[in-house]
C-alpha cells in the first residue's frame, strides 16, 4: 500500500543496524585501545613479565586491533560470545538464564508502570493546574532527584524489614512457580516502576497537553462533542504516537535502571552479571553484556521512531 512508510521504516531499521555496528566498534575500542596496557591493568602491579605475556597471548593482544575486532564480531554474530576470563565459562551459556531473568523483571515493571504513568498523566491533564496536577508534578520532580538505590532501600526497609511482606533479597531458581517468582520480584519491580514512573508520567502529560491545546480539539469542542468524545475521537488518535514514543524512550531508560536495581536486590540478572565482571575486570564479559544492553536500548529507540512514522497521517496518506 503506502510505499513511503515502508521505505522510511526500512531506512530507520537499516540506520539502526549501522548504528549497532558502530556501537560495537565503540565498545570494542573502549575496552581495547584505551591508554594503558589491558593485561597490566588486569593483573595489577605485581604481575611478572611471563604472566603478562601469557595473558596477552590468551587475549590475542599480539594481533592487530582490527583483526581482533572482526574475530570478536564474527563470534557475536554466530552466537559465540567467547569465554569469561575469571571463570573460564562460556559467556553465552551463563547469560541465557540471566537474560531471561532480567527480561522477566523488566516486563513486570513495564506492565505496572505504563498504564499507571498514562493514567496519572491523564489525571494531571484533566485537573490541569489544580492541586492534583501540582502534587503529581511535584512528586514527579522530586523523585527524578532520587537515586535508584534510595528508592530501592526505602522499599526494602519498609516492606521487607519492618513488615516482612516481601523478601529483601530476590532469589530465583529453577522450578519456582510463577507465583513464587512474582513474590520474589515484587520489590525490585516496584523500585524499577518508581524509577521510570515520574519521567514517563511527565512526558505523557506534556504530549497530551500539546494535543489538547491544538486548534482541531477546539473545533471538536465547538461542534458540541462531549469532553470524553473530544478526547476519544480527536485527541487520542493524535496523542497515541507521542505516547508510544514516550513509553519506548522510558523503557530504554529502564534498561539502565535495571543494573542498579538488580544489585540492590541481589537479583541474578544481566545487570548484576555486568557489574560483577566490571569489578573483576573481565573484559570479554563486559564487552558482550555491554553490547547486549546497547542493542536493547537502540532497538527500543528504533521502535519509538517507527511508531512515530507509522502513526503520522501525512506519511500514511501521501499527497
Amino acid at each position: 500500500m503506502s510505499s513511503p512508510i515502508v521505505k522510511l521504516v526500512a531506512q530507520r531499521i537499516a540506520l539502526g543496524i549501522l548504528l549497532l555496528l558502530a556501537v560495537s566498534v565503540l565498545i570494542f575500542a573502549g575496552t581495547q585501545i584505551l591508554p594503558g596496557d589491558v593485561a597490566q591493568a588486569i593483573l595489577g602491579q605485581s604481575a611478572t613479565p611471563e604472566s603478562l605475556a601469557n595473558l596477552r597471548e590468551q587475549l590475542g593482544l599480539n594481533q592487530p586491533a582490527y583483526i581482533r575486532y572482526f574475530h570478536w564480531l564474527g563470534g557475536v554474530l554466530t552466537g559465540d560470545l567467547g569465554t569469561a576470563m575469571s571463570s573460564g565459562q562460556d559467556i553465552a551459556t551463563s547469560i541465557k538464564d540471566r537474560l531471561w531473568n532480567t527480561l522477566f523483571l523488566a516486563f513486570w515493571a513495564a506492565v505496572v508502570a505504563i498504564p499507571l504513568a498514562i493514567t496519572l498523566g491523564l489525571i494531571a491533564v484533566r485537573y490541569r493546574n489544580g492541586w492534583v496536577d501540582k502534587l503529581i508534578s511535584g512528586v514527579a520532580l522530586a523523585s527524578t532527584s532520587f537515586p535508584e538505590f534510595f528508592i530501592g532501600y526505602l522499599l526494602v526497609f519498609y516492606f521487607a524489614v519492618q513488615h516482612q511482606w516481601f523478601p529483601a533479597i530476590s532469589t530465583v531458581y529453577d522450578g519456582m512457580s510463577i507465583g513464587e517468582r512474582l513474590q520474589a520480584i515484587a520489590l525490585p519491580a516496584a523500585a524499577l516502576t518508581l524509577v521510570v514512573l515520574a519521567h514517563m508520567m511527565r512526558m505523557t502529560r506534556a504530549a497530551i497537553l500539546n494535543v489538547m491545546q491544538s486548534a482541531y480539539v477546539e473545533t471538536a469542542e465547538l461542534k458540541g462533542l462531549s469532553a470524553f468524545a473530544v478526547i476519544r475521537k480527536h485527541a487520542f488518535p493524535n496523542a497515541i504516537a507521542p505516547i508510544i514514543n514516550v513509553v519506548m524512550l522510558n523503557l530504554a531508560y529502564l534498561v539502565v535502571g535495571v543494573v542498579v536495581v538488580e544489585v540492590i536486590f541481589v537479583y541474578p540478572g544481566m545487570g548484576q552479571y555486568l557489574v560483577d565482571h566490571v569489578t573483576k575486570r573481565d573484559v570479554p564479559v563486559v564487552q558482550a553484556v555491554g553490547l547486549i544492553f546497547a542493542a536493547v536500548y537502540i532497538s527500543l529507540n528504533i521502535i519509538a521512531d517507527i511508531a512515530a512514522i507509522v502513526a503520522n497521517p501525512r506519511l500514511r496518506h501521501p499527497k
Binding site: A215, E218, T219, A220, L222, H234, N238
Partner: peptide
C-alpha cells in the same frame, strides 16, 4: 452549550489547516 454548538451555531476558524484533525478524512469531520 453542547446542544447548541455545531447545531444552532457553527464556527469557521482563521487557520483551517490547524482546525482540521490531521488523523481523519475530511468527510468524516
Amino acid at each position: 452549550f453542547r446542544k447548541l454548538r455545531g447545531r444552532e451555531v457553527c464556527y469557521v476558524a482563521q487557520s483551517a489547516a490547524a482546525a482540521f484533525n490531521p488523523a481523519h478524512r475530511l468527510m468524516d469531520q
